[in-house]
């Protein structure tokens, strides 16, 4: 979605111009920057955390961007996603979901990290399948694949976002894609497997328990 026409004087500006003007105190430029890059940040976060956490992380990312130094070593988008990545990693750690050890972000999937996106009701079966597949591979691979396919980023750009050597990213893209194919074929080969993933009966029982444990 776009919001063109709302701030005419900012239309011709690049992301970087908008950011610099925002950091200099131009609120209109800041809003234009936010509107331009909001979808990028949301797309990055939406399949990794629950809805309410996502909104907080989006806000934190932009608040940090307003004050952070943009060195110009990469594109604004890469730089901004790097901020989002650090907030996401920090969230996973501070939420006690895992110890602050990189290796675990590499081996645990978002599904295992206890994420629970709630806005997926709208997604068509095929997209659901893919998103489920992405969620079931290690976080680092998921991030690399999503940035590559959704933001069109190169391995070098992804390396900049996650502060990782390029070679590692290339490995993650290759391994992640294989892992995703395996996951998808497992889910797709058996409708039951997909259904069981979606239905997640234990999760269902837990949610029922939670519904009982709290009023309303």
């Amino acid at each position: 979605m776009t919001w063109t026409g709302l701030f005419p004087h900012t239309q011709a500006m690049s992301d970087e111009d908008l950011l610099r003007r925002w950091q200099a105190g131009d609120r209109a430029a800041g809003q234009a920057f936010f509107q331009a890059l909001y979808p990028v940040v949301v797309r990055f976060l939406r399949n990794k955390v629950a809805d309410d956490v996502r909104d907080d992380l989006v806000q934190q990312t932009f608040m940090a961007a307003a004050q952070a130094d943009f060195g110009g070593r990469s594109s604004v988008r890469t730089w901004l996603l790097g901020i989002a990545w650090r907030h996401l990693a920090s969230h996973f750690r501070s939420a006690g979901r895992l110890q602050a050890r990189e290796v675990e972000l590499g081996t645990l999937s978002v599904a295992e990290l206890g994420r629970g996106p709630e806005s997926q009701a709208a997604w068509r079966q095929e997209e659901r399948l893919l998103l489920e597949g992405l969620r079931s591979i290690p976080v680092h691979a998921q991030v690399a694949l999503e940035l590559h396919y959704w933001e069109g980023m190169t391995a070098a750009e992804i390396a900049a976002v996650t502060d990782t050597p390029v070679g590692t990213i290339k490995t993650r893209l290759r391994d992640g894609r294989l892992a995703l194919e395996r996951a998808l074929s497992r889910l797709a080969a058996s409708p039951d497997a997909l259904q069981s993933t979606l239905d997640d009966l234990q999760g269902w029982a837990r949610r029922v328990r939670e519904a009982w444990a709290t009023p309303g």
Binding site: A122, E127, L130, L134, L145, W150, E181
Partner: peptide, 16 residues
């Protein structure tokens, strides 16, 4: 798979 992956990047345009 590449096509499907790229397509899944579509964002919901919902009121919410």
């Amino acid at each position: 798979l590449d096509e499907r992956l790229a397509a899944a990047g579509r964002l919901e345009d919902s009121l919410d």
